[in-house]
Design a protein around this nucleic acid. Structure first.
Length: 649
RNA sequence: GCCAGCGUAGCUCAAUUGGUAGAGCAACUGACUUGUAAUCAGUAGGUUGCGGGUUCGAGUCCCAUCGCUGGCUCCA
């Protein structure tokens, strides 16, 4: 393999095998992942050194494909956007403008209200800046000079940021032409590198994410080193729109959201089939995992919510009402009812772990602006369970729940990430209790070897939690499963059990969900499968269609057989062409179509067409039923007829 | 709740500078009797989200309100 000769800025020469990635070269030379990133590529046998080195770092070259490279690239894009905005509206004050997963944003404070047309103007100005080929120069200033510089420029937000930096912080700036920004860095060497970009949307955002602060105007954008990559990304966004669960939910008649009940979804017959299948599956696996099921009331009195603490800690989110002059509230969570259920009997340590599940419908008054299809609603169904146990059972039980959740997600083929959320500011309980419970959850995660990230201060007010997050079609993540260790409610409700010593003790309680919310899970499910549910979930599993009216009797005969086999069947016996019936069935995303005509009557067969595989061929009804029943029983994610076709071939 | 944008037939969208709402698909009726992604013809369908205002005249402009979308905040 040919070697690549690289001349470094200090004049020294290094030789690498051709094909070595720039990233590896950078690591090799610098011996570490340096804080400055530069985007570059090895082409052929030479390396373009023109964009090579920062003043205070050794050679650090990253490709756009590396996280650091993309980050630097987008961060520079963000600076270019800010520079463009400052040129167009000089009075604008800059807040923060970081790189994010798929692009970048910048928060601005200006009297000018940005409208969508402004994005084009800003893009045009950005193009100029890119063309000007401005190099990004880093410089550091002592605190007082840094403050002076930003104050002179009227950048109040930057002044605040500098004031909040720790004493020993290095205060760095980046300059590109006439534009200077307080910035810790990671930039490409020149504005010229930002080949393709697009500003995507406008949004409001509170300064520092605090709703008591001023609302700034945020502009989101994305950028790529090649136009083709940008096009590809924009195409992906278009594709994602097509699988949006709100769109598909309407098209497939799964659910409806109406003005009459914002945030309160209606489940239509098709959606109800999917929901019930999900619940059937859920009950099956939970029974196997040793759970019992209960149901508690939707409405309970004020005293209960005071006991639980919700009346004070969750009041803004609760729907309250008066009944016979007494205060009641609609449950926002199932736990208090679960506590009362626990207390209906004297419990023994021998009953532990006691796993009480509840498919509970809860109502929460979410902010109107937070509502989002099925993902964020005001009434939803939690697949809840409260598990009561001994302290020494905590780790194993958390592991059990993690396994259960994992196996459920695996059934749908979902990948997920885990977060551990710790004590929030507004919380109940002692420091010791929090330390103990947080350690218990983290210990279980570590023993399981699960990757997780810590979400400091994001726990529930009554305990720390482990969250399982799934992604929607736009890669936005949604919390679904959660496991919360709760030492508050057992105390507040004075829950006890009789231990082996014959004395009363306080049980440990886990509060957990796997789907999280059936509604949200269904939303994720729709987007993941783009509406093409696996057969076991599909509202209509088999669509029968006649070629001509004379085939209707035979079709009804087949329909009866499939019905008898427990399949969800629908017959299209309209006097339409078969092409049209197939087209409509495909659009309804029915997994299987049976085409019935003269040949089928003569041979006593059905002609099978699969939504995913196309024409499968003719077979006897019995063979068809046998195969599809297996596919359903296995909760297969793919059509089993594919395997059959492969075997025959 | 906050910032911005949007709201026309069941769905997807039209409607010059304000001039009196239209198309495709779906639906319905009829003809056609069809072999793997759209047969043809006809019929019907809208107080332009709701409520005010400006105007000779408002889907177009203004105000208010409800809802939706993208974010922020919050959270399953």
């Amino acid at each position: 393999m040919a070697d690549v000769k690289i001349t470094l800025k200090d004049g020294s020469v290094k030789v690498y095998p051709k094909g070595t990635t720039v990233y590896e070269i950078a690591k090799d030379i610098s011996g570490r992942l340096a804080k400055e990133a530069i985007v570059g590529e090895v082409n052929g046998t030479t390396v373009d050194l023109s964009y090579e080195v920062n003043e205070d770092c050794s050679l650090n070259i990253y490709k756009f494909e590396d996280e650091e490279g993309a980050h630097a690239f987008r961060h520079t894009s963000s600076h270019i956007m800010a520079q463009a905005v400052k040129r167009l509206w000089p009075e604008t004050k800059l807040a923060i403008g970081p790189a994010i997963d798929d692009g970048f944003y910048y928060d601005f404070d200006t009297d000018h209200t940005f409208v969508p047309e402004d994005l084009e103007k800003i893009e045009a100005e950005m193009k100029k800046i890119v063309k000007e080929d401005l190099s990004l120069e880093r410089f550091e200033l002592p605190r007082d000079e840094a403050l002076k510089l930003m104050a002179e420029k009227g950048e109040d937000y930057k002044v605040e940021l500098i004031n909040d930096l720790p004493e020993d912080a290095v205060i760095s700036f980046y300059r590109q032409g006439d534009f200077v920004d307080l910035c810790a860095g990671c930039h490409v060497q020149s504005t010229k590198k930002i080949k393709s970009f697009k500003l995507l949307n406008l949004a409001g955002a509170y300064w520092r994410g605090n709703e008591n602060n001023k609302m700034l105007q945020r502009i989101y954008g994305t950028s790529f080193p090649k136009a083709s990559l940008l096009d590809q990304h924009l195409e992906m966004l278009e594709e994602a729109k097509k699988r949006d669960h709100r769109k598909l939910g309407k098209e497939l008649k799964l659910f409806a959201l109406m003005e009459e009940g914002p945030g309160f979804p209606f489940f239509l017959p098709n959606g109800m089939v999917v929901k019930n299948e999900l619940l059937n599956y859920w009950r099956e696996v939970h029974k196997e995992a040793g759970y019992v099921e209960i149901e508690t009331p939707i409405i309970l009195n004020r005293e209960l919510w005071q006991t639980s603490g919700h009346w004070y800690h969750y009041k803004e989110n609760m729907y309250a009402l008066k009944i016979d002059d007494e205060d009641y509230a609609i449950k926002p969570m199932n736990c208090p009812g679960g506590m009362l259920s626990y207390k209906t009997e004297l419990r023994s340590y021998k009953d532990f772990p006691l796993r009480m599940a509840e498919i509970g419908r809860v109502h929460r008054h979410e902010l109107s602006g937070a509502l989002h299809g099925l993902m964020r609603v005001r009434a939803f169904t939690q697949d809840d369970a409260h598990i009561f146990m001994l302290p020494e059972q905590i780790k194993d039980e958390i592991k059990n729940v993690c396994h259960l959740i994992d196996s459920i997600y695996e059934t749908f083929g979902f990948s997920y990430h885990v977060e551990l959320s710790t004590r929030p500011e507004d919380s109940m309980g002692t420091d010791e209790e929090w330390a103990y419970t947080e350690a218990a959850l983290e210990g279980a995660l570590k023993e399981l070897g699960l990757d997780y990230r810590i979400n400091a201060g994001d726990g529930a007010f009554y305990g720390p939690k482990i969250d399982f997050h799934l992604k929607d079609s736009l890669n936005r993540t949604w919390q679904c499963g959660t496991i919360q260790l709760d030492m508050q409610l057992p105390q507040r409700f004075d829950l006890t059990y009789i231990g082996s010593d014959g004395e009363k003790h306080r049980p440990i309680m886990i509060h957990r969900v796997a789907f999280g919310s059936i509604e949200r899970f269904l939303g994720i499910l729709i987007e993941e499968f783009a509406g093409k549910f696996p057969t076991w979930l599909a509202p209509v599993q088999v669509k029968l269609m006649t070629i001509a009216d004379r085939h209707i009797d035979y079709a009804k005969e087949i329909e009866a057989k499939l019905n008898a086999a427990g399949l969800r069947v629908s017959l299209d016996d309209r006097a339409e062409k078969i092409g049209k019936k197939i087209r409509e069935a495909q659009m309804e995303k029915n997994p299987y179509m049976l085409i019935l005509g003269d040949k089928d009557i003569d041979n006593q067969t059905v002609s099978v067409r699969s939504r995913d595989l196309g024409e499968v061929g003719a077979m006897s009804v019995d063979v068809f039923v046998e195969t599809i029943l297996k596919e359903i029983k296995d909760r297969s994610k793919v059509a089993l007829f594919q395997a059959k076709a492969a075997k025959e071939a």
